[in-house]
Nucleic acid binder design. Structure first.
Length: 113
DNA sequence: TCGCTGACATCCA
DNA sequence: CTGGATGCCAGCG
């Protein structure tokens, strides 16, 4: 049984494991923790304050306007390009390798199987 | 204790 | 941009 607390814990673990300088999508995280992408967004909004949330974007590599200023600063720090004219380019060039990302997770991390 | 409704940092045609 | 599909939570009666 996957409770909300379990889900929060998994999301926190998964997001924390995203390698520096790379980004993942809500869908990636959702698939990894075994829930819907939208659920990840809810958790990030509520519990993601102390996580590298700027490494988690939507499928287009974008974030809501109220987060963009802070996210851009983080992306700049980590060498992640901000490409306002071609947001897809960022997600394409900086998306974390799932294998490398998942490898950073603890063995105990339940991926659903 | 339900059932409806609105809000959310999503995704797709 | 518009409209529908998904999952979960919070507020109201």
């Amino acid at each position: 049984m996957l409770t909300m607390d379990d889900l929060v814990s998994r999301v926190r673990t998964a997001v924390s494991a995203i390698p520096t300088g790379t980004i993942a999508t809500y869908g990636d995280v959702a698939e990894l923790v075994g829930c819907h992408a939208r659920q990840v967004g809810r958790i990030m909004a509520a519990e993601g304050a102390d996580l590298p949330w700027w490494r988690v974007t939507n499928v287009r590599g974008e974030l809501p306007a109220h987060l963009l200023p802070a996210a851009r600063a983080r992306w700049d720090d980590e060498g992640i390009p901000f490409v306002p004219d071609a947001p897809g380019a960022r997600i394409a060039s900086c998306r974390a390798d799932p294998s490398a990302w998942v490898a950073r997770l603890p063995r105990e991390f339940p991926t659903g199987g």
